[in-house]
């Protein structure tokens, strides 16, 4: 029983972070049609920025985190200006390749700035644990779950209830018609780049205190989050959140009970299966509003 509780708790925390990564990915895709393969490196950059604000700038943990997230908003805008705006009218494939180039550039900049040695990010709750049904669960994992849940709900609210959210959805559905209703596509795109980068930073900051940050830190998360997004139908935000939780839980429970050696490969297998068998996404049973 305690084993099941421990594995479930860690699966949910992992799924929550995946959801934040995947939503960042999706926000940008919806607003601009760009599948941004630099997203994982934005996760990495966000974590490094938080290391920088809390150590080099000496800010306390939480203000340091918030400063890093705000900085990542500016980074998002800068990427829109430098890498996306000039390619706006190019075919999607060109833009996707440009995001790969952006990923390499970001990684190179981090390496020059911070070196390639791993860094640690202090967490606000340290190594404390709580015991639930006999299972020891790190407080950082509860914090991750809570903060991610708030972020996801806030994002769903923005998408569902605010003019900006409607504009992004309109843009995703029919870009030309969106312009005819006066939607300023460039501003919306810029906002989406900023929002997406901030979500990436949040995910990085949530999970970094559990391990350490190095140059490859965000890449693996992005790949797994991509699998979650595809599982969720790559469109509906709610579906993606569900997909992320399913992947997180299956990876931990599968890894804990059945085939431990293959736990890490599992998201990739899911990705293949979904693309091959049910490209519209396992969870996308009806066309969703979100």
């Amino acid at each position: 029983m305690d084993k099941f509780v421990a594995l479930t708790a860690s699966g949910i925390a992992y799924g929550a972070v995946l959801a934040v990564v995947a939503l960042g990915f999706l926000v940008l895709y919806k607003a601009t049609g760009v599948v941004n393969f630099a997203h994982g490196d934005l996760v990495t950059l966000g974590a490094y920025l938080a290391v920088w604000t809390t150590t080099s700038l000496g800010l306390p943990t939480v203000p340091g985190y918030l400063a890093a997230i705000a900085l990542m908003g500016l980074v998002g805008v800068a990427i829109e200006r430098v890498a996306y705006a000039p390619l706006r009218s190019r075919p999607p494939m060109v833009v996707v390749i440009a995001t790969l180039a952006a990923a390499i550039v970001i990684r190179g900049i981090i390496a020059v700035w911070q070196g390639s040695e791993p860094k640690t990010l202090a967490g606000p709750v340290g190594n404390r644990v709580v015991h639930i049904a006999g299972a020891a669960i790190a407080e950082q994992r509860l914090l991750i779950t809570g903060v991610a849940a708030v972020a996801v709900l806030a994002l769903l609210f923005v998408f569902q209830r605010t003019p900006y959210g409607r504009q992004v959805r309109a843009l995703a559905a029919d870009p030309e018609m969106a312009r005819l209703t006066g939607v300023r596509t460039r501003l919306v795109a810029m906002g989406a780049f900023a929002l997406s980068a901030m979500l990436a930073a949040l995910a990085g900051i949530l999970i970094a205190p559990l391990g350490a940050v190095d140059l490859n830190f965000g890449f693996g998360l992005m790949v797994t989050a991509f699998a979650a997004a595809v599982l969720g139908g790559f469109g509906s935000l709610g579906g993606v959140v569900l997909g992320a939780l399913v992947i997180g839980l299956i990876q931990q429970l599968f890894g804990g009970y059945v085939l431990p050696d293959y736990a890490a490969t599992f998201p990739a297998i899911v990705l293949f299966l979904v693309i091959a068998v049910r490209p519209e996404g396992l969870l996308n049973l009806t066309r969703s509003r979100l």
């Binding site: 309109a170 995703a172 559905a173 066309r287 509003r289």
Partner: peptide, 8 residues
């Protein structure tokens, strides 16, 4: 018409 299909 181009009504947005994903919007109510």
């Amino acid at each position: 018409r181009h009504v947005f299909g994903d919007l109510t």
